[in-house]
Amino acid sequence: MIRLREVHKSFDHRNVLRGVTVAVDPGEFVFLTGPSGVGKSTFLKLLYAAERPTSGEVWVNDMRVDTLPLHELPHLRRTMGVIFQDFKLLKRKSVLENITFVLRFHGLPPREAQRRAYLTLKRLGLQHRQSAFPDALSGGEQQRVAIARALAYQPRLILADEPTGNLDAELAAELMSLLCDINYQGATVLVATHDHALLESIPARTLVLQRGAIAYDGIWPP
């Protein structure tokens, strides 16, 4: 599912990742943690090819990402769903449109896109908010819409970058429960977070990044 071998990444001679080697198998639930600025987001960006490594190999869903040609990028990204701390919802579109918008660009006919978007919203308990615009939603609801959008096209891999960063403890727990449920249904989930309370709430494999390298790989707490 995910394979990194001797991955280095530097920005202006500042080494963010130094020889990271790690593998995540299909169906795993993995936390990626470490202090702020350690390179968690960079790690994820390497996986969804928003950045290329300075050296090393990155494999995701059987595709070599570090040398992936630009025209292959959409194929890679269609195999994964990415969830962000700031949700990245389209403010000019309703909740339902935010999801159908993505599905339509994946080639689904309008009716099928609407049907699937509605079913995904229903799964996340948001069907009653389908006509609302993102600004009218609470933080938790917005994050659930972002997850619905990431899930709508049924990706095999979910990458979440600080997904609970803008949520209170109760909503964060609710969100993690949702991600566990998604993982239980077969998707591989990788969550980047610096929230220790979150790590302790779910016993899962945890990768700890320190000084650009994996300092710990195992169930948290140790």
């Binding site: 890679l76 990204r77 990245k88 994946h106």
Partner: peptide, 13 residues
């Protein structure tokens, strides 16, 4: 924002 989202979800260029 729409372009970013489109690219993130694998929309063709």
């Amino acid at each position: 924002d729409e372009i970013t989202v489109m690219r993130l979800v694998g929309t063709a260029e």
